[in-house]
Structure formats: C-alpha cells, structure tokens
Simulated assay, not measured.
Amino acid sequence: MSSGTTELAWFKSSYSGSQGDSCVEVAIAEQAVHVRDSKDLSRTRFAVNREHWAPFVDFVAGSTEA
C-alpha cells in the first residue's frame, strides 16, 4: 500500500445503487488498485497488485453467485 503521501482518487462502481449502501470504492494507482468500504472510511483498506486485479474481481464476482 502507498505511504499515504499521494492522494488517491476514489470512485464507486457504476453498479452501486443510488441508495449508497453496500458499496466499495476503488482507487487505481501505479502499482496497485486500492479498495475500501465506502460506508466506514475508518476501516482498514487493502490493495491488490494491478496484475492480479482482474482475477481478483472475477473471483469475487463468482463467489457472490447463488
């Protein structure tokens, strides 16, 4: 994760509802994609290496199917 000296530009997915619940935000940096809980910014965020971002998203999307 970055040292915090560079401000990240966070955004929510277009799939996030207008209600604002159950959302995550991501910020794309040079070395990693950072992920945080949009409802509770005090919680620990994490970063995924850019090389592993697409497989990570595929895994998460597959794990939410009923």
Score class of each variant (00 low, 15 high):
M1G: 13
G4N: 12
T5C: 09
T5A: 14
T5H: 14
T5E: 15
T5W: 09
T6K: 15
T6W: 04
E7M: 15
E7R: 11
E7C: 05
E7L: 14
E7T: 12
E7S: 15
L8C: 09
A9R: 14
A9C: 06
A9F: 08
W10N: 03
W10M: 07
F11G: 08
K12W: 11
S13F: 09
S13Q: 12
S14R: 15
S14G: 14
S14K: 15
Y15Q: 10
Y15C: 05
S16T: 15
S16N: 12
G17H: 10
S18H: 12
S18L: 15
Q19H: 09
Q19N: 15
Q19M: 08
G20S: 05
D21T: 14
S22D: 15
S22A: 14
C23M: 14
E25D: 11
A29Q: 10
A29N: 08
Q31Y: 09
Q31K: 13
Q31T: 13
Q31A: 13
A32G: 08
V33D: 02
H34S: 15
H34C: 08
V35N: 00
R36W: 02
D37R: 00
K39H: 08
D40R: 02
L41C: 03
S42T: 13
R43W: 05
R43Y: 06
T44L: 07
R45A: 03
R45G: 05
F46W: 05
F46Q: 01
V48F: 01
V48L: 02
N49M: 05
N49T: 07
R50P: 00
E51T: 13
H52L: 13
H52G: 07
H52Y: 09
H52R: 15
P55E: 02
F56W: 07
F56V: 04
V57L: 08
V57C: 04
D58V: 02
F59C: 10
V60S: 00
V60T: 04
V60M: 00
A61H: 01
A61W: 01
S63R: 01
S63Q: 03
T64V: 06
E65C: 06
A66C: 03
A66G: 11
